[in-house]
Design a protein around this nucleic acid. Structure first.
Lengths: 192, 192
DNA sequence: CGCGACGTTGATTTGCCTCAACGATTGTGG
DNA sequence: CCACAATCGTTGAGGCAAATCAACGTCGCG
């Protein structure tokens, strides 16, 4: 189960046997039932999570309204940096949309790893840089594109998401209401 | 001039004399006139920039419309990670809103630094993590708050910005039109 | 079967944008 | 030093896209 992670990492940094062993030693596994919360607003996020199977949804709860910000499917990494790094309570929620198998890395273990093997500092740097870039891409999408353009881009970039995630979560992710997404889809088919 | 940078860094990592010397050795200085572009869309971003004095504005140009995304004032760090890391042309513009003094670190030099002194990997990791967090904060602001709430939060978080930056850039940063910001401000004073 | 969750559709409202005009201020050239 | 233009913020009128409110059909499931 760790093999997929190691394989993914091998595209970023090269680990020797000692480093690989130290890395594997701090993994911990967890299963999530459908709808179960991996992280609840108010709790402190103490781990970085690798999604082995299933799909997670990250959202804010604002006065009872859920604003979905991101989906994490197979091979994606999740954490709330803001809480993870500062130790402050998270304002985000993360929920399993399906039954999930995840691998977790706890903060205290990771800090040891950083100190003992600088190669993980490099991995952490590049990972954070990549996370920053994808967040920037989402930002650009939200500020520069119309709802319809956003939907089309999502359909192009992650078509499988539209199959496995309820439409009202997609709408929230796109920053619109379910009714509006329904109308956008209707407009699009009638225009083919 | 490098002292301010070293001081800021000292809050993140501790450098020994060798490391400090290596760091200082790769700095380069640059002055920007008001309205001058530090980075132009289409160019490759080859450096990380520290703002010693003045103020920069980061924006997208979409069909002639400028969408302002961020302001960088004294002691702030700027780069386009997307371009800097991949070597691809940037889609962002960065403009000096005032006469600026900046310190730059070029990619090739930084890569050497990373290889020679692991402490800079750590610095890079933490910097990227911080950048991610502030971008996440902006994201949350845009998705969870109304225009008026966004303006109030900005006025609370960075009041000096409202003094030194034209209002139409503030409006763009908040994701609204100048006329709308003007009306929001009017509503707010009449409600005191 | 009956209930709840989900997507769709219609009617209406609303908040922001667009377009336009107008002062105030700043800067510039004669 | 003043006339003039350009820039910027404000205000008003009107339009429009998405939100809101409401109702309904379908599907899956206890």
């Amino acid at each position: 189960m760790v093999d997929r992670i190691l394989h993914q990492i091998s595209g970023i940094v090269t680990l020797n046997d000692t480093e690989r062993a130290a890395f594997v030693a701090i993994t911990s596994f967890r299963s999530l039932r459908k709808h179960e919360l991996l992280l609840r607003a108010g709790d402190v996020c103490r781990a970085i999570t690798f999604v082995h199977s299933g799909c997670l949804r990250l959202f804010y709860n604002i006065d009872g309204v859920e604003n979905t910000v991101q989906f994490f499917c197979e091979n994606a990494w999740h954490t709330d940096y803001g809480s993870f790094l500062t130790g402050r309570p998270s304002s985000e929620n993360t929920q399993a949309l399906e039954a999930c198998e995840v691998v977790q890395f706890h903060r205290t273990d990771l800090e040891q790893l950083y100190l003992q093997h600088p190669v993980f500092e490099r991995l952490g740097r590049i990972s954070a840089e990549n996370a920053f870039m994808s967040l920037g891409a989402r930002n650009a999408m939200l500020t520069n594109q119309t709802p319809e353009e956003r939907y089309q881009q999502l359909a192009h970039d992650r078509p499988e998401l539209l199959q496995r995630v309820p439409q009202y979560h997609i709408a929230s992710f796109l920053g619109i209401k379910p009714e509006t997404l329904s109308r956008i889809r209707k407009r699009m088919v009638s225009r083919v």
